[in-house]
Amino acid sequence: MAGGRSSKVKTQPEVVEPAARVLRRFRVVFNAMRGHFREVEKKAGLAGAQVWALSVVRDRPGIGVGGLAREMDIHQSTASNLLRSLLAGGLVAADREGADRRAVQLHISAKGLKVLDKVPGPFEGVLPNALRQLDARTLASLDRQLGKLIDHIGGDPDAATVPLGQRDPG
């Protein structure tokens, strides 16, 4: 180093447009979610949404399909589809007990408990978990701003009933 100067070249900080900065933040969120769901699928052999459904059944023994749909904030048919493979795999059992024999009560099996023991939390995914930790004012602001963004991109409101971490059908 001649003259006591550092050999490192000082560069100006990168100037990033606000839209590009926000896009980068969406990428960070998306990649964090994708990484979590990949890890879940690798350890459990199930999609993230299936693991979440399995954890809800574990935490609410006797829950029905409608209750599961409400807990996960998804359409009842989506909950039924998630349960189909869990039932077929012996991870969940469905019983018809009580006064209304038409209603199904769901219970996790020992095999299902073993699957959950292998999986890193949060079971519902990193985004729902992080959103629950935000204060009401921040959530209200995010809701308004994301609503504007959805309007600009012409987002499909029905897409909100498909849980994050669910494998693409087909």
Rank of each mutant, 00 (worst) to 15 (best):
A2K: 15
G3N: 10
G3S: 09
G3H: 14
G4M: 09
S6W: 02
S6K: 09
S7K: 10
K8A: 11
K8E: 08
K8C: 09
V9M: 09
V9K: 08
T11P: 07
Q12T: 12
P13Q: 04
P13T: 09
P13S: 03
E14T: 13
E14L: 14
V15N: 08
E17M: 12
A19F: 12
R21V: 08
L23M: 05
R24P: 04
F26S: 08
F26C: 06
F26Q: 06
R27D: 10
V28W: 05
V28C: 06
V28F: 07
V29W: 09
N31V: 11
M33S: 04
M33D: 07
R34W: 12
G35D: 15
R38Q: 10
R38I: 05
E41I: 04
K42S: 13
K42A: 14
K43V: 02
L46V: 07
G48P: 02
A49S: 06
Q50I: 06
V51C: 03
A53V: 08
A53S: 14
S55Q: 07
S55H: 05
S55Y: 02
V56Q: 07
D59F: 11
D59V: 09
P61K: 15
G62P: 04
G64T: 05
G67A: 00
L68I: 02
L68G: 00
R70K: 14
D73P: 01
H75T: 00
Q76I: 13
S77A: 13
R84D: 02
S85R: 06
L87P: 03
A88P: 07
G89L: 07
G90R: 04
A93I: 14
D95N: 15
D95T: 15
R96Y: 05
G98H: 09
G98I: 08
D100C: 13
R102M: 11
R102H: 01
A103V: 11
A103M: 11
A103I: 10
Q105R: 15
L106S: 04
H107G: 11
I108S: 07
S109I: 08
S109G: 14
A110L: 13
G112A: 07
L113G: 14
L113A: 14
V115A: 02
L116I: 05
D117E: 15
K118W: 02
V119N: 01
P120Q: 00
P120D: 12
G121P: 03
P122I: 02
E124S: 01
G125P: 03
V126L: 00
V126W: 01
V126I: 01
L127A: 00
L127Q: 01
N129P: 00
A130G: 04
Q133G: 10
Q133F: 06
L134K: 09
L134A: 06
L134C: 06
A140H: 11
S141L: 14
S141I: 13
L146N: 07
L149V: 10
L149G: 05
I150H: 11
I150F: 11
H152C: 08
H152R: 14
H152P: 04
G154D: 02
D156N: 05
P157V: 08
D158C: 10
A159T: 05
A159G: 05
A159K: 12
A160L: 12
T161W: 07
V162R: 12
P163L: 01
P163V: 01
L164E: 00
L164R: 05
G165Y: 02
Q166A: 13
Q166I: 09
R167F: 10
D168T: 15
P169F: 15
G170H: 11
G170Y: 04
